[in-house]
Amino acid sequence: MNINLTLIGQSLTFIVFVLFCMKYVWPALIGIMVQREQRIADGLEAADRADKDLELAKKEAKKKLHKAKEQAATIIDQANKRGSQIVEEAKEQARAEADRIKTAAQAEVAREVSQAREELRGKVAALALAGAEKVLESSIDASSHNAMLDKLAAEL
């Protein structure tokens, strides 16, 4: 219970302890606590932002999907049109080709007919000449009757 040097010893210990805490303990730990507070605040803010972003992205995705569907519908429509068009064209082409082939065939036929006729005509003349030769049993001067025979042939 006596007051003595202990008083001063305690004061010195106290001061040293306070200075130690002030220099090495308090700022370090408080700094870390403040830093954590900042991090938590940042994290919450980021979470909020992410929520908003998510909502926006959802909206965006919906819009895009809608657009894509529309586009797909248009493309299918176009394809259908194009398909029927191609079919039409093919039909048209086929018809034209058929016409062309028919015309060519007709022309061929006509040509062959006229050729046959030419041939026939020539042969008729010779035949008629041979017949007449046989009938007359005398040689006929071909050159003198040629005119008459040609006339005959032309009449065929």
Partner: peptide, 27 residues
Amino acid sequence: FMALHLDSLGWGLFLALLLGFTFRRVA
């Protein structure tokens, strides 16, 4: 006045060191 209470000072110092060491390690 020229006397020291070894027990008070010793325990005080010991506890101060204990706290100081703990705080420093944590920090």
